[in-house]
Design a protein around this nucleic acid. Structure first.
Lengths: 351, 351
DNA sequence: CTGTTAGCGCATTCAG
DNA sequence: CTGAATGCGCTAACAG
């Protein structure tokens, strides 16, 4: 532990008295060169003689020089900044996407400006204004539905934009995700194939989750089946909402054969509630999750789910954005990362 | 869905051809004023006549003016940016802290630059260099142990710094967290009081988790008790590591009365594994978690844990940073957010 | 390979 | 209350 009890003095106060930063010019002086040469030595070494590069590096190190990227970005019009807006961070699938995004960005020298919209389009819009003022080189948004005017505002700036976690034929710029509708439809077909007929759902009040639910119901309709019960849960999607949701469904007198949940977290809650009530899963009740969270394969029984490569969405967003920023053409501006139904212990063949 | 199929044209390409941004000067011209007056009307309305403010706002709106904060920050030396470095985002307690931090910052007009260190001090150090070049107004680090030189580097810049999730008498600037040692000690005492004697632990390879474990063992020592088994797990701390860990402990022939886990996620895994093996919890095996995650209270049985106000750490970090940035003195630069043992269904009085 | 000149967009002086 | 001059720190463009 270095310098113990240096508190009194070190409590260097309000940032008026910040040490005057040492600049390129200072380094240049010490190295006996012009500022621009120092700049080049640091960022464009090919243009500088090895000797001088060494001299520069030495001087910079000696002075503890830290470049001022604000100034650099202002001059180059490249900020090396990517902004992302997610609906939520804790208890969400987005944390993984953000981590993937960040990892890939970091590997390419970009940094991440992160904002949380709390599922509010208005908030997203407001955040976007603040974000744009930082001149990001790229932006990642969640979803394809935004406040009126967002599309135009974004197009006006010309920043590359990724809309993640959904698909559309007409993205603002780039869309990376999967079809919510196809998920709902496929889940319905799969469960119908297994012989289930009495469906219930526990669904988060989330635009995408709801579209999956509606697509599932539409597919059921086509087979002349209507869901017996639907329980909506307000995010954040915590485990207890799954327990409560299933309890509510039972309390209303419904006896579903299968409960389809908009998230594995809810499915897990339903599973625990069922077990607590002595209902055998999957014999008496089947449960379907979504997202294929880390824990889904390891609960007891493991939860059948829809696998989404959450991390890949983030990584792919970074890759696409960087490609576009660096002027490389994209093969496609709508990327379907797909999904996979995963049959595990909470569902089984009935018919 | 606005403007369907406008893809072909809208695929505005690589950012060379970004629309030349409209500046303060442009707005000024349209409003028939000087740039500085426009600037004041926007950021310092008190210095400007109401009429002209209106005129400015109108002109700005008409042109869709978006201020360039890079330029603004360069001039003012205030970036309104707070940088945070966390070891990990997905499957971690830090997501909640980051969300709290972000919410509070956002409410005060600050934005968050987020980086992930992957539990590497070297990476943290590297990130810090990149971060400092953005001239953040404040920095949040996780933990109190950093690469050599980090402390000095930070002090040299004079940026306010919060070290979160731990405590120390000599923080770089501000520390906000709780004592890992006291957690370990208290958990040991509590379980000893309940009559447990044969302890095992499943512990993440994480500096803080390990210090809690060591403190627990030290307290056991004082009662002449040595743990029967310790299983270390490499982050990310996913549920399956808890299952595997407990399985490994059993496989090694140990028969602990209680398993202390460094995270509720691991505890949950241990719980599921125990149940899968027909071991009754808490009758035959007690399990202690850490973190009081959302799900802990709702598993079956609910998991005894140590509650940490994860979100508060982030909020408090923001509050302290902002206070310092704005020149308000801090009452204290070491803030203990404490912790609370929560007795639930996975432990019970034996003696 | 290195230097000079100019300007990125805005806000801080200081004047009126 | 409004404006003119100057500079934040860096790099693009053009020399040499």
């Amino acid at each position: 532990m270095p310098e113990p009890f240096d508190l009194a003095d070190d409590t260097f106060a309000s940032n008026g008295d910040r040490p005057k930063s040492i600049t390129l010019k200072d380094v240049a002086r010490l190295a006996g060169l012009s500022p621009i040469t120092v700049s080049r030595a640091l960022h464009n070494p090919k243009l500088v003689k090895p000797d001088t590069i060494a001299r520069v590096k030495e001087a910079a190190a000696a002075m503890g020089y830290i470049p001022n990227m604000l100034a650099g970005s202002l001059a180059t019009k490249r900020s090396q900044l990517i902004a992302a807006v997610v609906p939520q961070l804790s208890n969400s699938m987005f944390a993984e996407t953000v981590q993937g995004l960040n990892d890939e960005l970091s590997a390419h020298g970009y940094q991440l400006l992160l904002s949380v919209s709390n599922y509010s389009r208005q908030k997203e819009d407001d955040l976007l204004t603040a974000i744009l003022s930082r001149q990001p080189d790229g932006i990642v948004l969640t979803g394809i539905h935004h406040q009126a005017g967002v599309r135009k505002k974004l197009l006006a700036t010309g920043v590359p934009v990724v809309e993640a976690w959904d698909l559309t034929p007409s993205p603002i710029d780039i869309a990376i995700g999967f079809s919510q509708e196809r998920v709902g439809e496929q889940v319905a077909r799969h469960l119908l194939d297994q012989g289930y007929r009495r469906f219930a759902s526990i669904c988060a009040r989330d635009e995408r989750a709801n579209r999956r639910r509606l697509a599932l119901e539409a597919e059921l309709q086509r087979h002349d089946i209507a869901p017996v019960a639907t329980h909506m849960a307000t995010p954040p999607t915590v485990l207890n909402l799954g327990r409560e949701g299933f309890r509510a469904i039972l309390a209303a007198g419904h006896a579903p054969e299968v409960v389809v949940c908009s998230s594995d977290v809810l499915a897990h809650g339903a599973l625990i509630e069922a077990q607590a009530q002595g209902i055998a899963v999957p014999q008496e009740l089947a449960i379907m999750g979504f997202g294929d969270f880390d824990f889904a394969a390891f609960t007891h029984p493991p939860i059948s789910s829809v696998h989404i490569d959450k991390r890949a969405i983030g990584v792919q967003a970074a890759v696409s954005l960087i490609a576009k920023i660096e002027g490389r053409p994209l093969a496609q501006n709508v990327i379907d990362v797909g999904f996979t139904l995963i049959e595990r212990g909470t569902t089984h063949k009935v018919a």
